[in-house]
Design a protein around this nucleic acid. Sequence first.
DNA 1: CGCGGTGTTGAGACCTGTCAAGACGTGTGG
DNA 2: CCACACGTCTTGACAGGTCTCAACACCGCG
Lengths: 239, 239
Amino acid sequence: MIEAHLMRLRRLFPLNEAEEGVLRGLPSDSRRIPARRTLVHEHDLLDHSLLLTRGWLGRAKDAGSGKRQLTEVHLPGDFADLHSFTLKRLDHKIVTLSDVTVARVPHARLEELTADHPRLARIYWFLTNVDAAVHRQWAFLLGSVSARQRLAHLLCEFHTRLDVVGLSRNGIYDFPLTQDDLATCLGLTPVHVNRTLQEIRKTGFVEIRDRQVRIHDWPALAKLADFHPEYLYQQPSVL
Amino acid sequence: MIEAHLMRLRRLFPLNEAEEGVLRGLPSDSRRIPARRTLVHEHDLLDHSLLLTRGWLGRAKDAGSGKRQLTEVHLPGDFADLHSFTLKRLDHKIVTLSDVTVARVPHARLEELTADHPRLARIYWFLTNVDAAVHRQWAFLLGSVSARQRLAHLLCEFHTRLDVVGLSRNGIYDFPLTQDDLATCLGLTPVHVNRTLQEIRKTGFVEIRDRQVRIHDWPALAKLADFHPEYLYQQPSVL
DNA sequence: CGCGGTGTTGAGACCTGTCAAGACGTGTGG
DNA sequence: CCACACGTCTTGACAGGTCTCAACACCGCG
């Protein structure tokens, strides 16, 4: 069930059998939830974290004006709110962007895990820091980069992250987001996303069709996006 | 020397004497560096983190176009790159925004600390997660908020964070940033920062003069900024 | 069959960027 | 003491990217 999560971890850190066993024992239950629901509200007191096993989630901050900004999108294998283990209350919502399956991991179990397996504790600390790196990249994009480049970059990021868990093949991946969702990621209006998407489509590098992203020319797209995947920290680490 | 850092921690978590002793022993040395230098380059392999004891630092990401975006500003008492303890290489630069004094904390010492004092380990994990919360807030501001509100919000954030370490009194704090620096924080051009600053000055809520920020009407400024400090996680926590 | 969600298009407004020039203060060297 | 360079702040005119509002097309689904 948490196979995608283990794929992510194994790629970074070799796991021994004991560790894999502990990790498999983390979830207390698993539930399916439809798209467009709020799983966690800001400032709620939390006693568990959510491990995403299927579908897409987002971290959303809402403005008083009604505008919503996503600060990160979570893909299968991600902990959506591992940081609630230390923060206990979140400064943002967790929302479903598609139908999802999430496993609940009680903080009490993470408590045991970090006490008994310092190396796994470090790995999870690492993962929350990678989330922060993604936030930084998004802040950079939102503040300093054109709509076209931002959009191209986002499609590159999704491909690169999905590839790790086997959900993108040959630059093609299932893509549940609407243009409205893209707008909330990119700090744009849906209308402008639509126009930007058309522009990018015209280059022939990539297209979104039938809820799928198809990257036809990865080097060109990555160059257009100025995409450098180092910020995703997918290279093996020594801990 | 690391008094400001201890002030931050004590406000969140009561520290016993043993813990304070360990924390005081963290820095290996301390150095002064002038403004406008790069202390850490992206992708460098790091074996220590920087504890800021005086002055202001920034986390900067540079675009190919020459545009620079700050994703966080660090104030006295902050670890500027505690996350390098787990990441080892950063996806951004650390730059001085003013003359600063930084203490170097070898990762080896953090290694000992986290092994011997699990509670301090958790506290430092918490702090890196607060940095991520600040990134989220900035991403939100950059993506979904007007220049005026963004600027007002930034001045609110600085006040609130400086207050914890005793560096803002009655809404007045020393402010080393130029309008160019503000532009790199806010994703704006210096020209537009100038004009936005004039607008805000006209409200009478706050002004920047002689390298000082003077907040004359905090409630009004906070309202203008839609500032809610929860994302800074300054309330006492139980760990 | 009608409805809601999604995608598309057009016209015009507005926010922010670009480029250029000048004011002002400070420090430095002659 | 002056001359000058430099960083910073300010202002103006104009351009351009993105937003707003509105309307319509398309499609799956009840």
